[in-house]
Simulated scan of single mutants.
Amino acid sequence: MSNDTIKLQAEARTQFGKGAARKIRRDAKIPAVMYGHGAEPVHITLPGHDAMMALKNPNALLTIVLDGDEQMALAKDVQRDPIKPVIEHVDLVIVRKGEKVTVDVPVHLEGEAAPETVVSMDHSSLQVEAEATNIPESVTVSVEGLEAGTQILAGAVELPAGATLITDPEALVVNVTQQISAEALEAELADAEAEAGVEKDESEAAEGETAEAEGDAAEGDAEKSEDA
């Protein structure tokens, strides 16, 4: 966990609409709005590069500096361009020291499970409640030596001190299964093809008969032309 905040120098925004937003982005800045704790929403612009770097961590605690005043905030919603690496808009929610917030924290796996097993992750993040100034960057789950059939539920994941699980404790996070052998995989594929291929075989037979009939007809035409 980290208590460090990232300072971003903001500017008040007075122009709104798509045209104004495009102009802001052309100036290498990001339009944003900051709200919370009963305060009126404050429309601001953020420095583009610094904000993009800060928001690489979705739960980064930000200190927004506006006209000399500082306000702690978390990114509630980050709208990104679907193609270009550009942030189009950011919603910021004001937080205070000691206040608890609910956030999604990524799950990181470490270690290697037992040989001939497959590890799948059903939940790549867990929702937790933590102090705004003490949000965990991630939670770590060890799969070292786990045998096939092992399942790790959300309630069994060890959380950092001060963090409380909000996700359903019975939610499956990690599932360790037996790796299928090449022979078994081939057998499964053969069975699947056999089941799906009944109609296919019939249609292929029909196509074969049609082709044979067409071939016979062609040969008959050729013989007639030779007789002529």
Results as ranks from 00 to 15, higher is better:
M53V: 04
L62F: 06
P58S: 07
I64T: 05
V78I: 14
A73P: 09
T45P: 07
D77W: 05
L74E: 05
V65R: 05
R80I: 12
V42Q: 15
H49E: 02
D81Y: 11
A54K: 03
V42H: 10
M72Q: 15
P58W: 00
G36R: 11
D67E: 15
G38C: 08
E70K: 15
N59E: 01
D67Q: 15
L61C: 06
V42F: 09
Q79T: 10
D77A: 07
L62S: 03
L66M: 08
D69V: 15
T45W: 02
P85C: 02
K56V: 01
E70W: 12
I83V: 15
Q71L: 09
E40I: 13
M52K: 00
P58T: 04
I44M: 11
I44W: 10
D67M: 10
A75D: 04
Q71I: 13
G38I: 10
I44D: 12
P47E: 05
L74T: 07
P58R: 00
I64Y: 01
H43A: 13
V65G: 10
V78W: 01
P47Q: 06
K76R: 15
I83D: 07
M72D: 12
A75T: 02
D67V: 08
I44Y: 10
D67K: 14
A73L: 10
L55M: 05
I83C: 08
A60D: 03
I44L: 14
A54W: 03
M72N: 13
M53H: 01
A60P: 08
N57E: 10
L74V: 11
P58Y: 00
L74H: 07
I44H: 09
P41G: 05
P85A: 02
I64E: 03
A73I: 08
V78C: 03
G38Y: 12
V78K: 00
L66H: 08
A39P: 07
I64Q: 02
A51E: 06
G48T: 03
L62M: 12
V65Q: 09
V65C: 08
D69C: 14
K76E: 07
G48V: 01
D77T: 08
G36L: 12
V42E: 15
E40T: 12
H37K: 11
P82W: 06
V65E: 15
M72T: 15
K56D: 01
M52G: 00
K76T: 07
H43W: 10
P41I: 10
M53L: 14
P41T: 07
G68C: 04
T45M: 05
L61T: 04
H49L: 03
V42G: 05
D77I: 04
P58V: 03
D81S: 11
D50S: 03
P85H: 04
H49Q: 08
R80E: 09
P47R: 02
D77R: 06
E70N: 15
Q79W: 14
A73C: 11
I64V: 14
E40P: 12
T63R: 06
I83F: 15
V65W: 02
E40C: 12
A60Q: 04
L55T: 00
Q79G: 11
K56Q: 04
K84M: 14
D67C: 13
D67L: 06
A75R: 00
A75F: 00
H37R: 13
L61F: 09
K84I: 13
G38M: 12
A51Q: 05
L62K: 04
G36H: 11
L62H: 03
G68I: 04
